Simulated scan of single mutants.
Amino acid sequence: MMERLKQELIQYSKEIGIDKIGFASAEPFTELKQRLIVQQELGYQSGFEESDVEKRTEPERLLPGAKSIIAIALAYPSKLKNAPQSKRGERRGIFCRASWGRDYHVVLRDRLEKLEAFLRERVPDVQISSMVDTGELSDRAVAERAGIGWSAKNCSIITPEFGSYVYLGEMITNIPFTPDTPIEDQCGTCTKCIDICPTGALVAGGQLNSQSCIAFLTQTKGFLADEFRDKIGNRLYGCDTCQTVCPKNKGMNFHHHPEMEPDPELVKPLLKPLLTISNREFKEKYGPMSGSWRGKKPIQRNAILALAHFKDETAVPELIDVMKQDSRPVMRGTAAWALGKIGVKEALTHIQHAKEKETDLEVLLEMEKGIRMLEIQ
């Protein structure tokens, strides 16, 4: 009966648009537990994940009587159709591929809810606990055990069918499904992702220092450390470098789900309009995207850094306004630094005048940096 139910569930998953499904035991993730403890000791965690290692590695703590975990994967696009061009005076930023289209948390929860309903109809007393990304369990560890793909050196799950361009979700249940066989690691001796990481955040194959990962840094809200400012480029949210360089992702581009189709103007937006976007407009335009979850502040700070990256002289008037008028210290200070980086001499007087009225110590420090860059040019 369990095997028949498993096959019926697999068939139903295809009907509702799940690209891959796998089944794993709900035994503790003992190896993962040790790795997470090391990550904590090294200070490599981002702070966004669940801090309780036991909850992350012991499914029965989340669902007493847990017997199985059902893992799902949905493939998302890797190439942008009709991408607008970034050009002089109209520079653009970029959201990572995982933020294209509708927020993947919403999409995957919809699929998991359908699977839940399917199981409840056939097993009325079934117990279920589902989660996507923000749950306690490690999506990658579950997917690896369930045979969805292997855990790669770039810390992504790579599937043979879709590469690493997949969203992951899982469902713990008390139904004792037969577990699937994990996929053998296929990274081999390749180290391209480690070699190309802009900040060296991939300290070793499968080991990430989240504190220096650009994907994490773009989501922080404070001043970005000087050492990372030149490396963030025009990224507004996330980083795809370790995925785009991966040979296993070559030619992988799937458009299976209409809700995942990106709006080119949203995922590659003009930078200057972002500097003055209102809370309401930001929520209306970017709210449905997963990249909006931290609000507009990190996106705006990153837009300023991107304008500095491009040395966009046409943005100087807008940056001067931000430096003088924005109520948030991070925006004022980052704008002052960006003015120095862009290097238009006329900005020097504006920074000096703004400095006379500034009271925030961190902003004053950024203004000094901007002034020094302009004075030595």
Rank of each mutant, 00 (worst) to 15 (best):
Arg229Tyr: 02
Met171Leu: 14
Gln211Met: 14
Arg92Pro: 07
Thr181Asn: 14
Val166Gln: 06
Ile342Phe: 01
Gly149Pro: 07
Ser86Tyr: 00
Leu108Ala: 03
Glu259Asp: 10
Ile277Ala: 08
Ala98Gly: 00
Thr191Val: 14
Gly340Ala: 10
Arg328Lys: 13
Pro176Thr: 01
Arg91Ala: 04
Cys242His: 06
Thr173Asp: 12
Gly233Cys: 04
Gln352Thr: 12
Asp180Val: 07
Asp133His: 03
Ser156Trp: 10
Gln243Asp: 06
Glu60His: 09
Gly169Gln: 07
Leu80Pro: 03
Leu365Asn: 11
Lys20Pro: 00
Met373Arg: 11
Asp125Glu: 14
Lys231Cys: 03
Gln40Ala: 10
Ser290Trp: 07
Leu115His: 04
Ala204Val: 12
Met171His: 03
Val106Trp: 11
Asp263Glu: 13
His309Leu: 01
Lys67Tyr: 03
Thr314Phe: 11
Glu161Gly: 11
Pro77Gln: 04
Val107Leu: 15
Glu284Thr: 10
Gly251His: 05
Gly163Cys: 12
Leu5Thr: 06
Gln7Asp: 13
Pro258Leu: 08
Glu284Pro: 00
Arg229Lys: 14
Pro264Met: 09
Pro198Cys: 09
Cys246Arg: 02
Leu374Tyr: 02
Arg61Phe: 00
Lys369Ile: 11
Arg120Asp: 04
Ile21Gln: 02
Asn279Leu: 05
